[in-house]
Design a protein around this nucleic acid. Structure first.
Lengths: 252, 252
DNA sequence: GGATTGCATTCTGTATTATCGGACAATGTG
DNA sequence: CACATTGTCCGATAATACAGAATGCAATCC
């Protein structure tokens, strides 16, 4: 487990790329230099290299930069190799189509959920959760699912790291959260009642391996009004069916 | 248009990442060092930085590396920002579902097609075309579409760069290709008769802007036997309908 | 079980290389 | 038309990335 000092130029280059995670808005050299507190010429050298390698693309009209297509190629190499996302995607699509809402697939990593796939329907308002996003466990539907179905020792450790109000609805004390987790275990699904973002609700279920270990979580996410408009028992059954189908296809 | 020398460490780091475009197979430090003809310690410094920043992930069992989740986040920032892919995706999904085959969306860039989105059905054999992949125009269905519907001056220039047999079926002489392009213009769709890969066929149609410029191409791609098993007029009509729907949603 | 191989990782001195300030050109603005 | 702003280029300098050797750890072999 290396702890050697990071290579400076590389670290800086990557932080430039990461600036574009804001939806890939075009940025000028100056803007980047200010944001990272570097000299213009340093930033230019890095950007220029990234552009030559097609990781950035320069708009010829205003000279500003945005992410290049090479980034797409890399990203797809990840998802291509990700058996879970690959197996799950068609099932998420069906669910998105059936309920006309966004469907998300998440895994747990180091006490965070990471979204690794997403499907939308043509009519659904786009949910601003981007693939690759990390969120804390206690304040999301998929996260609470993980807390409910992971070994108690792990969940206790993660909860011990602290809870806090992300929205007024977030469960920010351990006893209430423990009650909630019990109820999730009983019902087999979690409900996110605007606990991460006001106006957004979701219903999430666990996906298990053959050995019974929870490996992922699937959710249907959307504006609260529309999610509440769906019959909860039908939705939760559909989600559970989807989770089983994914498990079946994976067969691990 | 900068032509300044590339920053060495960054260029090397990116070439490391690109090694993983082969489907993200795990690689050892030594393997990478040999492939890039660099010293092990140099590679280690780069890899270690990339891993610390989550662009690479180390398998704790065998110490080998593969692409990390941060790459996903970046890739999704590109597609997020890509209005075309966003508008097209739900329509591609419907098409994949209807015909139970892979659906691809491609744009043209500097005389190449670049695939920017892909949908699959649960039953379809996965087509090995990855998002971000570049291919020449003359040997693919989507590429021939672009040649047929782009300004003749451009297509002539691209064809003048040379044709060659990618498979025995590839059209590798200008007169035959010209005939083919005429027929594509007449029918409104292109057929790829195993011209890029034996055993794989596709039907592709153009997507036009309001101004009548061809901006993208949509294809249904799969094993020849299955593609030929679909009624061609139904398939081409479905593809044209999809292309129109995408144009309509985009409205540019 | 001791020796040996093969690997990732760390260390260290050196010279390459990234960095930064400043210059310049191009474009936009009052 | 002066002035501001911005992307790009240049050269001096010192910080930094680099290569090679050393270390440590595991697996394999005899």
């Amino acid at each position: 487990m290396g702890k050697t000092k990071n290579i400076q130029s590389l670290e800086r280059a990557m932080s430039i790329l990461e600036l574009f995670e804001d939806g890939n808005r075009e940025k000028s050299v100056k803007e980047i230099a200010i944001k990272l507190d570097l000299s213009k010429s340093t930033v230019f050298g890095l950007i220029n290299t990234l552009a030559n390698l097609n990781y950035l693309h320069q708009n010829e009209d205003n000279l500003k930069y945005s992410l290049g297509l090479k980034v797409l190629a890399l990203g797809s190499a990840v998802s291509q190799s990700n058996l879970l996302a690959k197996a799950a995607n068609p099932h998420l699509q069906k669910l998105s189509f059936k309920f006309q809402e966004t469907c998300l697939l998440a895994i747990e990593e180091n006490g965070f959920v990471v979204y690794i796939d997403k499907t939308e329907s043509s009519s659904s308002i786009s949910i601003n959760t981007r693939i690759g996003t990390k969120k804390e466990l206690f304040c999301t539907g998929v996260g609470k699912c993980f807390l409910a179905f992971m070994p108690k020792e792990n969940s206790d450790n993660i909860i011990a790291l602290g809870l806090r109000k992300v929205t007024p609805n977030t469960i920010d004390n351990a006893p209430d959260l423990e009650k909630e987790l019990n109820s999730i275990r009983k019902r087999g699904f979690a409900f996110d009642n605007e606990e991460y973002e006001l106006g957004i609700s979701c219903v999430a279920v666990p996906v298990f391996s053959n050995a019974g270990k929870m490996i992922a979580s699937v959710s249907l996410t959307g504006p609260t009004a529309r999610i509440r408009g769906i019959d909860l028992s039908e939705l939760s059954e559909s989600l559970k069916f989807t989770a089983k189908a994914i498990s079946g296809d994976l067969n691990i």
